[in-house]
Design a protein around this nucleic acid. Structure first.
Lengths: 345, 345
DNA sequence: AAGAACAGTGGAAGCGCTTCCATGAATATA
DNA sequence: TATATTCATGGAAGCGCTTCCACTGTTCTT
């Protein structure tokens, strides 16, 4: 019923091998033959059968992305990068969106099926230890994004440097008493962001003071949530008295900052007049809440993830390639810097 | 290198046909043989080769979803429904996220490749006329979501009824002078939402007045954007004087409502005290802005989309099945209804 | 007891491609 | 002129499965 290379071969008066070579841009086909075949291809509006190609060539031209839905905006942005690059490289993208680690395992298993995908991208979650061995064994390329494992290609964000940039921005605005609201130090991002905060202070000749760091771990996500941010802010405001009171605060994430904003409003503390805020992530709501924040290059991370996968496909034996991205400062109202209103995106 | 059914057959001392029948739950295999084969399957940790299966069986167990990224929250929610149902039915989902109709065409073409996917889902865009014929010709199942064409299965939202519900809610709160802010009447949703508004008014014995409808088409998306909402609100407030001034407004979309909120704040009009607002969509920001709005059952739409595709696969000759969903009222602060604070989600 | 019906089974054919090897023609080299 | 080299080409083999047909042995029917 549908047109196959046999039909093309018959119609063009050549062999199937030649047809295949034409279609795959093999060099050893004469110009005339190629033209003749391509004419027939067009005339019969031939479409290659994807799975036959894949079975014969042992390549799938398909990759899977296992990515948590709950990251919302990050999800969309990164995915867009992945998708665009996939289109450019001619890959199909199988999306495995998950809501919990259990689902993720199911899809990891599925991705490991022979001949299913050429590679896997795993986002924002910890790779279960049992799959480390499996991926190494099958040598199925795996790229971790917003995650890390020494044995695999990975992409992450320079949290320490980002936190430094955020803190420096507050310093440049003239603040000398800067507090920090952080999430659980059991997480690497929280630790890194605090180190960056500390480094920026010390760079400016200011002391790092433990009593200026407010950590709350209530709620989900190790304290990276609204309620924890609010609790920390209330804690901060309660203690923020006297001559050396903090006039600014660096908050480890936008979601916490949103909670903090609520807490401040409730207690009558004005932002940025009484307290300037810079946070981290640049989620969609950050714009709405006019948060000055550190933006992660989400789209670019998606693009790079696919590039890494592609490179790995070409060269399976290269050592793991780890890339970290530098976040960029997005200035909005919460830090008190004066910006022309049309720049308030 | 990898385990094939030939290995299984040899190891279990049976023929490949029997192995295949075991794997596919064919009835005509004796209980003992099946047990023996399945034991070997487990022992050798056999994984079927997806593409070989697909080539031989002429089924792909894969569907593609062509969906615009710019719908953001809608995108995520619907996708989640699609994905969950796909997982349940054992389908893989190839995601083709697009940013413009041109890209969409590319992916439509790609989806039409022989043996590539079993079906296509097309979201929130108008199906190009040239593809109508192609899909009918190839008989590749196509489901339209948040879109409509008489010849295909589709899922959409009851805009008219939703607008009626929104307006009725304001009526029930005691408002008798209700304005509307709308987007371009060149779009079906805008027309339907206005008709619903009109119907609710007339049902209550109130006149529909053209001077109470404010339309702005500035910006993108036919006026379904922030700036247009703001402009309309400023227009409304400027004219909203005298005894019969409007005390409430139904706004055709949340994004417009967000702009309207800004405009109102700027002009010193309090929401909901001076002006109650109900809008439409329930995007993520609606919660943050405390908008009372009409929620579309996005997740359910995704699920149903896949169910429709599945049904079409089973029964290619059934007449097109069109489903419309009824949106539901989400009460928050912007309408002025008193709700216990813990319900303010 | 002979034949029909049927449950189980093995394996060839075939899905539509890629790739390798063999072949023949054309060209270069001695 | 004889031989080596290169280029273009045809087509068989094979990717790993499903499915169909043919075959065997058993049970049922008359």
């Amino acid at each position: 019923m549908s047109v196959t290379i046999y039909d093309l071969a018959r119609e063009a008066g050549v062999g199937i091998g030649t047809v295949s070579r034409c279609l795959n841009n093999h060099p050893s086909v004469s110009v005339e033959t190629r033209a003749k075949v391509l004419e027939v291809v067009k005339r019969l509006s031939y479409q290659p059968h994807a799975y036959a190609q894949r079975l014969a060539s042992k390549k799938t031209n398909t990759i899977s992305a296992i990515i948590p839905f709950f990251t919302n905006y990050f999800f969309i942005q990164v995915l867009q990068g992945v998708q665009d690059k996939a289109a450019e490289l001619g890959f199909d993208l199988i999306l495995y969106g998950v809501n919990n680690p259990l689902q993720a395992e199911y899809y990891l298993r599925r991705s490991l099926h022979r001949g299913h995908v050429d590679g896997v991208m795993f986002f924002s979650m910890t790779l279960p230890e049992s799959y480390v061995a499996k991926f190494q064994q099958t040598r199925l390329p795996l790229v971790l994004v917003d995650a890390y494992h020494p044995e695999f290609d990975s992409i992450s964000v320079k949290n320490l440097e980002g936190a430094m940039m955020a803190t420096r921005h507050l310093l440049k605005l003239g603040h000398t008493s800067i507090a920090m609201i952080n999430a659980s130090l059991s997480t690497q991002p929280a630790r890194d962001r605090m180190e960056g905060y500390r480094a920026a202070l010390e760079e400016a000749g200011l002391p790092f003071r433990n009593d200026r760091v407010f950590v709350s771990e209530i709620g989900k996500q190790d304290g990276f949530n609204r309620e924890a941010g609010r609790a920390s802010m209330e804690d901060l405001i309660g203690k923020n008295v006297g001559r050396d009171r903090a006039t600014a605060v660096f908050i480890a994430s936008d979601v916490q900052a949103l909670g903090a904003l609520e807490g401040a409003a409730e207690l009558g503390v004005r932002v940025p007049e009484d307290l300037a805020i810079v946070s981290f992530d640049d989620i969609e709501l950050a714009q709405h809440a006019q948060l000055t924040t550190m933006r992660q290059p989400m789209y670019e991370m998606g693009v790079l993830a696919l590039e890494k996968l592609f490179a790995r496909l070409k060269n399976p034996d290269a050592p793991p390639s780890q890339t970290t991205f530098l976040p960029s400062l997005i200035v909005r109202r919460s830090c008190g810097a004066r910006v022309p209103s049309e720049q308030l995106v």
